[in-house]
Structures are given as structure tokens and as C-alpha cells.
């Protein structure tokens, strides 16, 4: 499998990264170099092998469903590039 210019543009859209026209050809080359190389994993017989979802042999711990934190509006908004009246702002999304 290899990617073409259209696929690179599609992935960039999915990843929400703007790419300029001149960036596309080098990215096609670099991504294909990496994908060609990882392709070798197809050789490995993985029939009946469970995919690893956690490397640590730990059972997910349970805790009481209780509020332990909160009331930190100022701290939450402190780093926002634009916060007004206790809210994050974004460009207008509703006409």
C-alpha cells in the first residue's frame, strides 16, 4: 500500500493540519518511505495472537464515583488564547 497526493491531502484534513501545495510531494515521498518499511510486519504470522492493548499486567482500578475536584474556572481558563466571561471562545460556528 502506498499513499498518493490525494491521500496525503485527505489525511492532513482528517488530522486538521493545513498543508501547502509545495509540501505535498515531499510528504508523499517521506510517508511512503516509512510505510514501505513498516509493510514488513505483514510477514509475521499473527493468527490467533491477541493484540496488545495494555503492556502492564494491571487490572483497571475502580474508584468511588464521587466529585473530588472542581471549582477552578480561573485555572482552567488561564492559558486560553482568548477567554471571555468565563468561557473559551472559538470563531463563529452558527450563522
Amino acid at each position: 500500500m502506498s499513499v498518493d497526493a490525494a491521500t496525503v491531502r485527505k489525511i492532513a484534513t482528517l488530522a486538521r493540519i493545513a498543508i501547502k501545495d509545495e509540501e505535498v510531494p515531499p510528504l508523499v515521498g517521506e510517508l511512503n518511505q516509512i510505510l514501505d518499511w513498516v509493510e514488513q510486519l505483514g510477514e509475521v504470522d499473527t493468527d490467533g495472537v491477541m493484540p496488545m492493548t495494555s503492556v502492564a499486567d494491571i487490572t483497571a482500578p475502580l474508584r468511588t464515583d464521587a466529585i473530588t475536584d472542581g471549582q477552578k474556572e480561573a485555572a482552567v481558563l488561564h492559558n486560553a488564547p482568548d477567554a471571555r466571561e468565563g468561557h473559551f471562545t472559538v470563531p463563529k460556528v452558527v450563522e
Binding site: 486538521r16 492559558n79 486560553a80 488564547p81
Partner: peptide
């Protein structure tokens, strides 16, 4: 995503701002 912390670069709409 330019909303909660760090850099924000404007765009034509919200997706443009993210991108």
C-alpha cells in the same frame, strides 16, 4: 486546537483556525 492553551492562528472559520 488553539482553543484551550498555547498558540492560536486565525482562519476563515473554526476548521481553518484549527488547521
Amino acid at each position: 486546537d488553539g482553543v484551550r492553551y498555547g498558540l492560536r492562528v486565525p482562519g476563515d472559520d473554526i476548521t481553518g483556525m484549527y488547521e
